[in-house]
Amino acid sequence: MCLGIPGQVVQMVDTEQHLAKVDVSGVQRTISVHLLADEGVVVGDWVLVHVGFAMAKIDEAEAALTLDQVRKMGADYDNEIDAFHSSRIT
């Protein structure tokens, strides 16, 4: 199963390359925010992350609700977090 996981942008790593560092449940990774370039992603924004890409901007309430629902999925959530841990954009 592939899930989109909410993450909060904690750093803009490379604005030219549209790379940002996001925090997902305490794990930080650099992801591409290129798909949201027209929306002006900034530090503090919440995004929905899937396979190393920010797919949508979401608000904090939606992020909290989504994280709560995903955690209730148990093993699927753990697998998605494990996949996030191992993903890297080079």
Results as ranks from 00 to 15, higher is better:
Lys57Gly: 10
Gln17Asp: 14
Gly44Trp: 00
Gly26Met: 04
Thr30Gln: 01
Leu48Ile: 06
Thr15Cys: 05
Arg88Glu: 11
Lys72Asp: 15
Thr30Ala: 09
Val24Arg: 01
Ala83Met: 11
Ala61Tyr: 06
Val9Leu: 02
Met12Cys: 02
Asp76His: 07
Ile31Cys: 03
Ala64Asn: 00
Glu60Pro: 06
Thr30Ser: 05
Ala54Gly: 10
His50Ser: 13
Gln69Thr: 10
Asp45His: 05
Gln11Phe: 04
Trp46Met: 10
Glu62His: 09
Ala83Ser: 13
Lys72Ile: 04
Val42Ala: 11
Ala63Val: 12
Arg88Trp: 12
Gln69Arg: 13
Arg88Tyr: 14
Leu35Glu: 13
Asp78Trp: 08
Leu35Asp: 11
Phe53Arg: 13
Leu3Asp: 02
Val9Glu: 01
Leu3Pro: 01
Val24Lys: 05
Val49Lys: 03
Leu19Trp: 08
Val42Gln: 11
Gly4Glu: 15
Gly26Asp: 02
Gln8Tyr: 01
Asp82Glu: 14
Leu65His: 13
Asp78Glu: 15
Val51Ser: 14
Val24Phe: 03
Thr90Gln: 10
Arg88Met: 09
His50Met: 13
Gly4Met: 08
Phe53Tyr: 05
Gly52Ser: 09
Asp23Arg: 08
Thr15Pro: 07
Ile5Thr: 11
Gln28Cys: 12
Trp46Lys: 08
Asp14Thr: 08
Asp14Leu: 05
Ile5Glu: 03
Ala20Trp: 01
Glu60Ser: 08
His34Phe: 14
Ile89Glu: 10
Glu16Asn: 15
Asp23His: 04
Leu35Met: 11
Val10Arg: 11
Gly26Phe: 07
Ile58Gln: 04
Glu80Met: 13
Gly52Gln: 00
Gln28Lys: 14
Met73Cys: 06
Val41Gln: 02
Ala54Ile: 00
Phe53Asn: 08
Met73Trp: 03
Thr15Val: 15
Val24Pro: 02
Asp23Ser: 14
Cys2Val: 12
Cys2Ile: 15
Gln11Trp: 00
Thr66Glu: 04
Val13Gly: 05
Glu62Ala: 12
Lys21Thr: 01
Val22Trp: 00
Arg71Ile: 03
Met73Phe: 07
Val10Gly: 03
Val33Cys: 01
Gly52Ile: 06
Asp45Phe: 03
His50Leu: 14
Gly74His: 05
Asp68Tyr: 10
Ile58Phe: 07
Ser86Trp: 07
Ala83Cys: 12
Asp45Tyr: 01
Leu35Ser: 13
Thr66Asp: 06
Ala75Asn: 12
Gly44Pro: 07
Val43Tyr: 04
Asp45Gln: 05
Glu62Thr: 14
His18Met: 12
Ile31Val: 15
Asp45Ile: 00
Glu62Ser: 10
Leu3Gln: 04
His50Gly: 05
Gly40Lys: 06
Asp14Gly: 06
Leu3Ala: 12
Asp68Met: 15
Val33Asn: 02
Ile89Met: 07
Ala54Gln: 02
Gly74Ala: 07
Val70Pro: 00
Val24Tyr: 02
Leu3Met: 10
Asp82Ser: 14
Lys57Cys: 07
Gly40Tyr: 04
Ser32Ile: 02
Leu19Tyr: 05
Glu39Ser: 09
Asp68Val: 06
Val22Glu: 00
His18Tyr: 12
Gln8Ile: 10
Val70Ala: 14
Gly44Phe: 08
Asp59Ile: 02
Ser32Leu: 01
Ser32Lys: 06
Ile81Gly: 06
Tyr77Gln: 01
Leu67Val: 06
Lys21Leu: 03
Asp68Ala: 15
Val22Ala: 01
Ala20Asp: 04
Ile5Ala: 05
Phe84Pro: 00
Ala75Glu: 13
